[in-house]
C-alpha cells in the first residue's frame, strides 16, 4: 500500500470511529462534548511547532509563531473551559448522592 493510500485508509477509519463514539449522547452533554472536541483540534499546535522549526526568519517564522500562539490558546483554553463545565456536573452528582 502506498503512503498516500495508507493515510487515506486512516482518514476513512477515523471518520467511522468519530461517528461511532458520539452517536448516542444526551442533550445535557452536547455543550461539554463540543467544547472537548474543540480542545482536541487544538492539537494543530503540533503541526505549528513542526512548521516553525522549519521556518526561515522573516514572514515564514512570524506566521508560524502566530500559529503557535493561536493553537496554544485553542488547546490550553479548550481543555480548561471543558473541565470547568464538567466540574459543575460532578458537584450535582455529589448532592444527589447526599440526598439519596
Amino acid at each position: 500500500m502506498s503512503e498516500a493510500m495508507a493515510l487515506l485508509a486512516i482518514f476513512t477509519l477515523a471518520i467511522f470511529v468519530g461517528f461511532e463514539v458520539v452517536s448516542k449522547v444526551s442533550s445535557t452533554l452536547h455543550t461539554p462534548l463540543m467544547s472537548g472536541a474543540n480542545a482536541i483540534h487544538g492539537i494543530i499546535l503540533v503541526g505549528a511547532i513542526i512548521v516553525a522549526s522549519h521556518s526561515d526568519p522573516g514572514l515564514e517564522l512570524w506566521l508560524s509563531v502566530i500559529a503557535i500562539v493561536l493553537a496554544t490558546i485553542n488547546l490550553v483554553g479548550g481543555f480548561i473551559v471543558t473541565d470547568r463545565m464538567l466540574e459543575m456536573f460532578k458537584g450535582k452528582k455529589k448532592q444527589l448522592g447526599e440526598k439519596a
Binding site: 471518520i15 461517528f19 463540543m34 472536541a37 483540534h41 492539537i43 503541526g47 512548521v51
Partner: peptide
C-alpha cells in the same frame, strides 16, 4: 494539514473532531 505535514496524529485527531462534530 496532517496530510500536508505527513502526521498521522493530526489526521486522526482532526478527522475524529470533524466526524463527531458533524454528528453533534
Amino acid at each position: 494539514s496532517g496530510y500536508v505535514l505527513n502526521s498521522t496524529l493530526l489526521i486522526v485527531a482532526g478527522t475524529l473532531v470533524g466526524a463527531s462534530g458533524t454528528i453533534l
